[in-house]
Nucleic acid binder design. Structure first.
Length: 580
RNA sequence: GGACCUGUGGUGCAGCUCGGAGUGCACGCCGCCCUGUCAAGGCGGAGGUCGCGGGUUCAAAUCCCGUCAGGUCCGCCA
């Protein structure tokens, strides 16, 4: 149906998918690619003409010589199909174009793979011919979904009074955190720009500059190894606001993300709940819990505190109930044990819950109390399996958390969308080889004000005012309340082993700016690639990126990365060490 | 840096365990036939460095070693 006039151009009247009963009898022009040609001898042939909106059938003379993927302009009369020839699977299936004039706008060789979705095509081939791949319905849907999400996020931020500011792609190196992509300077040989891992510092400077509500749909670049959910370049909804608390940020970002969810799925999720980092680790063994399914971790430490069973002699003993898991074969149990060991566990104990009690190689070593605790874990039923790991607290949680996911996590395309804010991350994640503390997030993260006194006495216990947004086990983004007070910032730098001089040379322009009136501020960044991938039901963000890189960082279509010319090398005054 | 998986006409797969002629299936492509198809149908045909290199063997798509490419994961991603 012709509801939007943007379908019409100088060459066409409407999109292929819009040719329906509402335009019956009209003479119209459509443009598109030949999806299929069905010939019935000299006097009759059917052409399916495709554009992104769909397919329309044109009835032509058999002498029209066009092949798959030819680009055509067809002018014809929209006619009701003869009785009994309606195709209910097409939106245009009640009509067809008759008395057609066919104009070949572009001939085409047969494509390297079929455009229809009848068989999967190897991703290597798809990426080499990405311009053909994106003709396919799925890629059209995914990229258009992405555009809708972008537009919705932008609208939501603007509605909330946020101002979009573009920050530089050529920025100063800040050797900390992710490896940066480096850009040599021609006008200043031997000196370099870097591409931003995020607009973090720029947006904090905008806070000093009085843009109290900033956002940007920002490209970020990190020269780190790629994964299914990580590309060199990715896109974030980057947000920062002044005179706010964590709760304000949650409200701003929730509004935008829930708007996007509604636009993408047709349903608006309820308000996003929060969970502390400590709870997430304790209950799900991870800082990005997948809440689509239960299988919580349960603590058994107190029961096993005086155990005689060597395998369970550890600070923490935790268990996980696998509903129906008693049916697991021995080889599956062995595989789980291998997975646990691969994650650093000393071993994995398993107990089948049977009518007679517990079935396990370890069962006969348990005391009655221990057996009862395992038998009753998480209200276990006959037919369940109980997995038990004994280790240091964090290790035990993480191992069981990983097992929980590999046993229970539904595919990305399944299940409800379950958002959660994870709060109160630790400020420091550990100690480096020099004995200096390491930031969990970044060095501008505000500590929890109740924990300020712990910075010197017990720094690893210091909670921060930082937070992640998690959706179905994927980290969608993270943010924090930033430090705007010089005294706290200098305490953090000193805990991190960053001297005043070093802080000045690395972050001098930020610290300098803060001397001129820094408002309290906080922010967040939402990973749009991941958000759209989950909306699209894809387990790989390449499926929602037009021209992604392979896992080794190459572009199979353009051949990048490539040599540059001798002239470019000379201009940049580059010399190269021999390849090792 | 590491572990595992994959690589066979244009596309997708089978063949590999247990070596015996490039064998098979589906789609596509080309030609002919076909006036209501829409996963059109019928007949015929073309199309191959079994990723690449080496080794074992009378003989290698198949076994072994190496290498390249793609993927999943670990490390890494303040």
């Amino acid at each position: 149906m012709m509801t939007e006039n943007f379908e019409a151009t100088s060459m066409r009247d409407l999109l292929c998918g819009s040719v329906d009963l509402t335009v019956t009898g009209e003479r119209v022009s459509v443009c598109g690619w030949v999806a299929k040609r069905r010939e019935h001898g000299e006097h009759l042939a059917f052409l399916d003409l495709r554009d992104h909106s769909g397919v329309v059938q044109a009835v032509v003379d058999g002498s029209v010589d066009v092949r798959s993927e030819y680009v055509l302009r067809i002018t014809g009369t929209v006619s009701l199909r003869p009785e009994g020839t309606v195709n209910e699977r097409l939106s245009t299936g009640e009509v067809e174009l008759t008395d057609c004039e066919v104009e070949v706008l572009s001939a085409a060789e047969p494509p390297p793979f079929q455009i229809d979705e009848r068989s999967d095509v190897d991703e290597q081939v798809r990426l080499k011919f990405r311009y053909i791949d994106v003709r396919r319905d799925k890629m059209q849907r995914n990229l258009r979904l992405r555009a809708k999400v972008n537009a919705t996020l932008r609208r939501a931020m603007e509605r909330q009074g946020f101002c979009e500011v573009e920050t530089p792609l050529l920025w100063a190196p800040t050797p900390e955190g992710a490896r940066e992509f480096v850009v040599p300077s021609r006008l200043h040989p031997g000196e370099f720009y870097v591409l931003p891992q995020s607009p973090q510092i720029a947006k904090q400077l905008l806070m000093v500059g009085g843009f109290d509500r900033y956002f940007q749909i920002a490209r970020c670049l990190r020269d780190e190894d790629l994964r299914a959910d990580r590309q060199f370049e990715f896109t974030q909804l980057d947000v920062e606001a002044s005179f706010v608390t964590q709760d304000d940020i949650f409200a701003f970002v929730s509004e935008a993300v829930l708007d996007a969810a509604e636009a993408a799925t047709g349903e608006r999720p309820g308000p996003i709940s929060t969970m502390t980092w400590a709870d997430a680790l304790d209950r799900y063994g991870t800082d990005k819990p997948d809440l689509r399914f239960a299988m919580d971790l349960h603590d058994l430490s107190s029961v096993f505190s005086t155990t005689q069973v060597k395998a369970f002699t550890a600070p923490t003993v935790k268990g996980l109930r696998v509903p129906g898991g008693a049916e697991f074969t021995r080889s599956r149990l062995d595989a789980l044990t291998d997975q646990a060991k691969g994650l650093g566990a000393k071993g994995l104990a398993w107990f089948r819950v049977t009518n007679d009690g517990l079935d396990s190689p370890l069962a006969r070593f348990l005391s009655a109390e221990e057996a009862a605790a395992i038998r009753g874990l998480d209200d276990a039923n006959v037919g369940d399996l109980i997995l038990v790991v004994a280790d240091e607290y964090v290790a035990a949680c993480k191992v069981l958390g990983a097992l929980r996911l590999s046993i229970g996590a539904p595919p990305v395309s399944e299940g409800p969308h379950h958002y959660v804010w994870i709060t109160e991350f630790p400020l420091f994640e550990g100690v480096d080889e020099n004995g200096d503390l390491v930031s969990a997030h970044h060095p501008f993260t505000m500590p929890h004000l109740d924990d300020l006194d712990l910075i010197d006495s017990d720094p690893l216990q210091v909670r921060s005012q930082s937070y992640d947004l998690v959706l179905n086990g994927w980290e969608l983004g993270s943010g924090s309340v930033r430090i705007h007070r010089a005294d706290i910032q200098s305490r953090i730098f000193s805990a991190l082993g960053i001297s005043d001089e070093e802080a000045q040379s690395r972050f001098g322009f930020l610290l300098g700016a803060f001397k001129y009136g820094a408002p309290p501020h906080a922010g967040f960044a939402v990973g749009i690639d991941r958000l759209v991938a989950i909306f699209a039901g894809e387990d790989n963000i390449r499926e929602v990126i037009a021209f992604p890189k392979t896992q080794s960082g190459t572009d199979l279509m353009s051949g990048a990365p490539k040599d540059i010319t001798a002239r470019q090398i000379r201009d940049l005054r580059l010399t190269f060490a021999p390849k090792v």
